Amino acid sequence: MNNIIIGTAGHIDHGKTTLVRHLTNVNTDTMKEEKERGMTIDLGFAPLITPDGQIFSIIDVPGHEKFIKNMVAGAKGIDFVLFLIACDDGIMPQTIEHKEILKLLGIQHGIIVLSKRDLVSSEKVEELKKEISSFFDDNFFKSFPIVEVSNKDEHSYRILYNKIIEETSKIAKTISEKNKFFRLDIDKVYSPKGVGTIVSGTSEGTISKGDFLTLYPHKIQVRIKAIQTHGKSVDTIVSHQRCAFNISGVTAKEIERGNVLTNHPALLNSRLIDVLFTPLN
């Protein structure tokens, strides 16, 4: 099975981070402010281990409207989405906004997860399903199965886990190594004391420890000193893996989210862009 990147989506407080914790035993809210406010602010990451021992990456995104830019940074590059809608709230503003973002990004595979099932009656759930059927009225999400989960029923998350494995197995064949060159769109940068510069993102292509890359738009050559994926040191990374690089040749202060690391020889810096606008309803 190929590597698959799974992302969450949905309105604030609809249970995205809780869901990831049930599936992976990892709390992706690591920032002090996130823990104090009880809400996801930046991107979080966790490994999902498959029955055959393969590791998929889950990207947990914020649901609050103020952090929609962070959500887009996380949604870019995902292959499969867990789209959460809380049974007690139903469809909310960021439910709509996240749906439109995923549609624009071309995400075509996923599961609609109805969270907080224990808070409502069976009649309410059926009403919500009808509302969802009307809301997801285009072909883009029509094939998404619906799974209900409850914090009071751990088995419901096991059912969801099995459904994730089933659904991702259908798309694994279509995900292949298409990139001759390597590219990493940087979504996190930090500098632990005594370690140096660390950048992370979702890989496109293959690269190894000791290889050289160019940082754009700075056009600075950097060397990969070490590679990790979900805390495990590796010598080589391939497409569709969450990875962190320890790099030399640049300081963390010189890098920001959105910078690019690549070995592609044809990239150019430019002040001109072509933009295609897709108006939303």
Score class of each variant (00 low, 15 high):
76 K>E: 08
76 K>T: 10
76 K>C: 09
77 G>E: 02
77 G>Q: 06
78 I>M: 08
79 D>M: 07
80 F>Y: 06
81 V>Y: 00
82 L>I: 06
90 G>L: 11
92 M>N: 06
97 E>F: 07
97 E>D: 13
101 I>G: 04
106 G>F: 07
107 I>G: 00
109 H>K: 14
111 I>G: 00
112 I>H: 02
112 I>S: 01
115 S>A: 13
116 K>W: 01
117 R>G: 02
117 R>L: 13
117 R>I: 07
118 D>C: 12
118 D>P: 07
119 L>P: 04
120 V>W: 07
120 V>L: 11
120 V>S: 02
122 S>L: 13
122 S>C: 07
129 K>G: 03
130 K>L: 08
131 E>G: 10
132 I>R: 00
132 I>V: 14
132 I>H: 00
132 I>L: 11
133 S>Q: 15
135 F>A: 02
135 F>H: 05
136 F>N: 01
139 N>P: 01
141 F>S: 05
142 K>V: 07
144 F>P: 01
146 I>Y: 05
147 V>S: 00
148 E>V: 06
150 S>Q: 08
152 K>C: 07
152 K>N: 11
156 S>I: 03
158 R>E: 15
158 R>A: 09
159 I>E: 04
159 I>N: 06
161 Y>W: 08
161 Y>G: 00
163 K>H: 08
163 K>Y: 03
165 I>D: 01
166 E>Q: 09
168 T>Q: 15
168 T>I: 15
169 S>W: 04
169 S>L: 13
170 K>H: 09
170 K>S: 07
